[in-house]
Design a protein around this nucleic acid. Structure first.
Lengths: 173, 173
DNA sequence: CGATAACGAATTGCGCACAATTCGTCAGTT
DNA sequence: AACTGACGAATTGTGCGCAATTCGTTATCG
């Protein structure tokens, strides 16, 4: 397979093995890249699971705790904006964190539409285990500082591209 | 407890930075990298959704169809090995594909433990839309061939690292 | 042989993720 | 003040993803 690059003309050619230019190869690669990301997310989740099980958290719950550790008393919407999650996901998740005694949820008296999420003492105390978890994850990646930086930079570029494509063209007919 | 902690530029105050120097930064980065991957996977899913809705597929269903398009008549286990999914995920998914008329599931007469999944005519016909989907995804990434290759290579290295760490040390107590 | 272990799917239960809808609250208009 | 629209959360319903268990089949060993 030839490795000719920088082709940006991919218009209206259907079919996979049609023997076209390099855009077919790029299209196939984008497919494979998506699966690699999908698979890596699952592998990360499995890596986190035994660590977070000891804290009684799932990975999405851990993400919410990270947000609250860096800024307590946020609304559901504010948490959702940082994590890109909506109330349909967060409301039941926060209820579980509340049932676990890690946060409290109460309506803002100034604006009854808002629900403010506040850490309890137990929620704040869990932060002591953060370092241990992060160290274990770092070790599991098998990457060094440079590798981590390079990969995160590229993934964030990809995220920006995908988000830009979703934003202006989020229409269906 | 008078710890307001409105400082977000440092992370090594509480119990995080109790140990070492530069590995703290790496540990934090690995945390952020995981979120970037997690978030990118969701963005990919949202990008695929309007495209696959027209085919009546979800993204995991699309992955299964990709596997079957490149090798029909596979067992549930064989599909699961390619996608890293187990029967708890695949069995209901395959039943939905069967209900949609895209595949058929039947026990292997030679070995009644195996369930072979075969494409129907409609399942084979769906393959005609593959090119269109791939082109749209390629465009949405905003990456060129070099960027795709570089990113996929690094994500696959990360996957290998995580998988190597899961395999030998998949113990819980 | 017959008991037993291993195997492959299916099932159960829990927790996301997300679209779509509902509900109470607040803001702007007349 | 009543009407209207926007807003933030909660709710409903579908589909993963995975651990744990169950069930029928096959292979192995004494």
């Amino acid at each position: 397979m030839a490795q000719d690059h920088q082709d940006t003309t991919h218009q209206g050619m259907g079919g996979i093995g049609a023997g076209k230019g390099s855009s077919d190869q790029a299209a196939l690669l984008s497919n494979q890249l998506c699966f690699s990301i999908y698979s890596a997310a699952h592998l990360f989740n499995r890596t986190y699971k035994p660590l977070l099980d000891r804290l009684g958290l799932t990975y999405p719950q851990y993400l919410v705790m990270l947000v609250l550790w860096s800024g307590d008393g946020l609304t559901v919407k504010a948490i959702g904006e940082q994590l890109d999650l909506d109330s349909g996901t967060l409301t039941p998740l926060l209820k579980r964190l509340e049932a676990a005694g890690l946060v409290s949820r109460q309506r803002d008296p100034q604006n009854e539409r808002l629900v403010r999420v506040t850490l309890t003492g137990a929620g704040r105390a869990l932060r002591d285990h953060l370092g241990t978890v992060q160290e274990a994850i770092l070790c599991a990646t098998g990457l060094n500082l440079d590798g981590l930086k390079a990969l995160k930079t590229q993934v964030d570029e990809l995220r920006a591209g995908l988000a830009a494509n979703l934003g202006p063209a989020d229409r269906d007919d």
